[in-house]
Nucleic acid binder design. Sequence first.
DNA 1: AGAGGCGAATTTTTT
DNA 2: ATTCGCCTCT
Length: 694
Amino acid sequence: MDIDVLNEKQKEAVLKTEGPLLVLAGAGSGKTKVLTTRIAYLIREKKVDPSSILAITFTNKAAKEMKYRIIGMLGPIGYSIMICTFHSFGLSILKEQYALLGYKENFTILDSDDTLTVVKKIMKEMNIDSKMYNPKAIRNAISSAKNELMTALDYEKYVNSDFSEKVLKVFKLYEQKLFHNNSIDFDDLLVLPITIFRKHPDILKAYQERYFYVLIDEYQDTNEAQYLLSKFISAKYKNICVVGDESQAIYSWRGANYRNILNFEKDYDNAEVILLEENYRSTQTILNAANDVIKNNTERKEKNLWTTNEEGLKINYHRAYDEMDEAYYVAREIKKLLEEGISKSEIAVLYRTNAQSRMMEEVLLRENIPYKVVGSVYFYNRKEIKDLISYLKLLYNEYDDTSLLRVINTPKRGIGLKTIADLSLKATHEQKSIYEVIDHGKELQFKNLIESLKKETEHLSITELVEVILEKTGMRKEYESEKSLEGEVRLENLEEFKSITKTFEQEHGIISLREFLDEISLVSDIEEHKANDDVVTLMTIHSAKGLEFENVFLIGMEENLFPHTKYECGKSELEEERRLCYVAITRAKKHLWFLNAKKRLVYGMDASNPPSRFIREIREDCLLKDEIEPIVSKDFSLNIDENISYSLGDKVFHEQYGSGVVIDINSSIVTIAFEYPYGVKKMIKGHKSIRKVS
DNA sequence: AGAGGCGAATTTTTT
DNA sequence: ATTCGCCTCT
């Protein structure tokens, strides 16, 4: 553990172990290093019991990274430290205290799709028109209310419109329904522990004593519930260290309140504040640009990033003709970088909205530059996977109506809408779950099937159980008998799921269904276990938070797009956009490019936006305007056979990857699933390397 | 139950 | 421009 490699401020942050501490850590100032060293110091020097340390992060990825680094420093003892996300911390409490709130041990967690389904169902039952009131909006309103720690009862006081009146109605039933289903949503993972703590001071006390030292990462992103949970847990010993940077608060639209970090000193008497302003990541030029932009925000703590790094390259600024020209400029610059021997994994293209990735993808495909789009398709979101997970959830918690409804007629077993409606009505009426009220007909056969599978869970591993489910529910047969290529792909996905469970079991030993379900409920996607993929990264600025790349292209630097002003543009919204810009700029270590276009298609209409105000906020000598001839090129025909149309399920043959199936088509890109080991690839329509086979 | 047509919406995303 | 959800028709 190298305390000596830390700078003075970082050292202070490590050594001040007692009492409330606020570490304002600018971008690239070694925040994670401080956190991990601090934990190592507590254990090694202060002889603190690892199990009395609680470190909370926002994402699984961050938690994993921190754990990995700690274990690197301390060895296996690191495993016994509670390093987790807010939600998994909440779950750990609920697993111990569920009974206090009347839940049964086998409660399950609904994801945001599931909760939407519940909301829709309730709206239907209550005859609320889903055209007049958007179910998603209602779900979000409920979720926001819960994160503000409002119960349905509290919400009543805030009803001031038609919409909120409907929200209230749905909210009440929603909470009832979840309870009767013995299930909870993501928000409950934060809210219910707080409810318990408020009701049972003795239990709160026990947790306070268990976690003597508390660390919270990304404190600027805490919402009310998370804020309060942090406060409760550390209220007794007040050994709370929060780390964050209000300049990087970009989730206020999700209920995060960066004032939590600005108010830390008011919340905790004698709080010490340490500023980490030395940046180890970027060049002076990049930091100047970042500072120039962020200083236009009013609500922030004065902070000025500096570095001893060299001045570095200027920021290239290119105003392209249109979005295609913009993408081509980026592709050309990337090619230059690759020729210089720069690794693709050190190149990122960042944008404000997902829609912008499209043209970029198309051009990178045409130019044969390997890339990945972060956060596009979620494995767990595929239909067949969700169905399978629903079976698992139902086996664990038969009261889970959401899962039951998903699979009761999947694959088809002749249980129609009428039957389902009747069952739902009966269940609502008797305040029971659907499973409980099933007593005859084909649905009883289904119930018996579930009962027999439940028996199997006792002596099978998860992988074996999945196999039995695929067989006995007829899922496998269904897809096999389709004799369609789509069915084949779905079967492959299910096989892939089995390899996930297998890996999981190899890593964790024999695990219970509960452990497995918890894991997949709280992890949004599987590990990107294609490790050594050296490719260019495309992603939104939001997803780029916490990451760094030597070379960063920031595209769409235009008014209306970034800052984004689709709806209203209030001062606070603009400031959040500016923080987002700050985050984007500070991702770059060595070289940064700004791109925009004189005109582009927005919602199918020509739009021409002036350059982003953020560019103007940067001192001029940081920027190098690059004026080159626009590529107004029509000769994309290179390697392309025109007029080839595709439909889903078409069989194709690729000279390198062999035979494959078209699984997605969008304007000029086809997605093709090739056989093992090539997998799913995107290609430009009509590329000469692929041909259709009949 | 599945295909086709129409209208509406279209920032950011984790858990 | 395109996607998505809902509706109707086979």
